[in-house]
């Protein structure tokens, strides 16, 4: 048994310690907002926060996350996350939508520490999050939009 803290709640899971956190979230805990895209930390679709920092759940063994604070898109609730979720809808960012929870998790980590990101800051924070529909222009605009709302 491993003890996890997921979205503020303690959870006990009976899984092999080498299981990637992604599959514990998706298959064991049913938190399917975190997506599987590559399994090799190359696309960012599985981005979650470990103690507030963005990590790729597909390459993070669950044993590494034991006892630490894990936040998934389902638990993204702070000021930055709320502003981003709203901006994503206002600007109609998603197309297929599959990568967007991961994009928002990466963007949340950025806005939590940087309330006035430049285009270059956004590119640096989100370059690891692929979007096959190429919604990048709207992602960039929505991050700026959310940042402006947070400052207002």
């Amino acid at each position: 048994m491993l003890s996890l803290i997921v979205n503020g709640k303690p959870r006990e899971v009976d899984v092999a310690p080498d299981t990637p956190l992604l599959w514990v979230l998706r298959d064991t805990l049913g938190l399917t907002g975190t997506k599987f895209g590559c399994g090799e930390a190359l696309c960012g679709a599985c981005t979650v926060h470990l103690n507030g920092a963005p990590v790729r759940a597909c390459k993070t063994p669950v044993s590494v996350a034991a006892g630490q604070k894990i936040t998934t898109i389902e638990g993204a609730s702070g000021k930055a996350a709320q502003a981003l979720l709203q901006a994503w809808v206002e600007l109609d960012v998603p197309q297929c939508g599959y990568c967007q929870p991961g994009q928002i998790m990466s963007a949340t980590a950025l806005l939590t520490h940087n309330h006035r990101p430049s285009d270059a800051d956004i590119d640096a924070a989100l370059d690891g999050n692929l979007c096959r529909c190429a919604t990048y222009q709207r992602i960039r605009a929505a991050v700026h939009h959310a940042a402006a709302k947070m400052r207002a």
Binding site: K35, I73, E74, L85, W88, V89, D92, P94, G97, P101
Partner: peptide, 21 residues
């Protein structure tokens, strides 16, 4: 006007086939 699926696709609640349990 707005997409009908933007909110669900942003907050992770949109259901893809692989999400089905």
């Amino acid at each position: 006007f707005k997409r009908t699926d933007a909110k669900a696709k942003s907050n992770g609640s949109a259901e893809f086939a692989g999400d089905l349990r």
